[in-house]
Computed example of a mutant assay.
Amino acid sequence: MKKFSLSLVGASALLAFATMLPAHAAVDVDAAQALFKKNECTKCHSVDKTKSGPALKKIALKYKGKPDGQEKVIQQITTAPKVKTEDGTEEEHKVINTKDPVALKNLADWILSQ
């Protein structure tokens, strides 16, 4: 009986701890795609084909699963860094027209989900 009650206490504690962890919100695909299109990202990027910029699948492969992956994507879309296009020329990356951190994280997570 003592062994059973310890297991029950342990399981209860584990369940209580799990409910305290922050829940990761699912990607709002419609909102991410709308922001992507509104900012004309489709001029240079496609989900699976390389245009003048890399395909989103290629970006996702580079950053997905890395602890700072989301941060790196957000930095790329908010700071106008110089980027090389597929033809070798350099240009400033367009900045996403929002300061909403939730929208930026959602867009980054959508890109990383490709």
Rank of each mutant, 00 (worst) to 15 (best):
P101D: 15
A26S: 15
A60L: 08
A11C: 13
A60K: 06
K84F: 02
K49C: 10
S12F: 01
H93C: 12
N106L: 11
A55F: 01
S5G: 07
V102C: 09
V29T: 12
D30K: 04
K84G: 12
A32P: 01
V95I: 02
P22G: 08
H45P: 08
E40C: 11
K84L: 06
G53Q: 01
K105E: 15
K72M: 11
A31Q: 02
K66G: 12
K62F: 07
D87K: 04
T50F: 10
F36K: 06
L35I: 05
I111M: 02
S46L: 01
V73H: 07
K99A: 05
E71F: 10
F4T: 13
M20K: 06
E40A: 13
A18L: 12
Q114S: 15
K64D: 04
V29E: 14
H45A: 06
A80W: 07
T42V: 01
S12T: 06
L112R: 03
A108C: 03
E71P: 02
K66S: 13
F36M: 11
K94A: 12
P54M: 04
A11F: 12
A25L: 02
K64P: 05
V47Y: 04
N39Y: 02
S12L: 05
G53P: 00
V27I: 11
K57R: 08
L112V: 09
T85S: 13
S46H: 03
H45S: 11
T42K: 04
L104N: 07
K57C: 07
K43Y: 13
A13I: 07
V27Q: 08
K43W: 07
K99H: 11
L21P: 06
V29S: 13
A31I: 00
V9G: 14
G10M: 13
N39K: 03
G88H: 01
L21Q: 12
S5M: 11
G69H: 00
K72I: 00
S46P: 09
T79W: 14
G88K: 01
P67K: 13
A108Y: 02
N106R: 05
T50G: 09
L104S: 08
F36L: 11
D100Q: 05
A13T: 12
Q76P: 07
V83H: 03
K99G: 08
C41D: 07
Y63I: 02
K64W: 01
Y63D: 09
Q75D: 15
K105Y: 10
F4I: 15
L112I: 04
P81D: 14
I111A: 00
K38R: 15
S7M: 12
A18T: 01
Y63R: 08
P54S: 08
A80E: 14
L56T: 03
E86N: 14
V47G: 07
L112G: 10
A60R: 04
D100W: 01
F17L: 15
K3F: 10
E92V: 05
A16W: 01
C44W: 00
K105V: 10
M1Y: 09
L21S: 08
D28P: 06
G69I: 00
K49N: 11
A60W: 05
A108Q: 01
A16R: 00
Q33M: 05
D28R: 03
L6V: 14
S5Y: 06
E71K: 06
Q33N: 09
L35R: 00
K49R: 09
I111N: 00
A18M: 12
K99Q: 09
F4A: 15
K66D: 08
K37C: 11
Q114I: 10
C41R: 00
P101C: 04
A23Q: 14
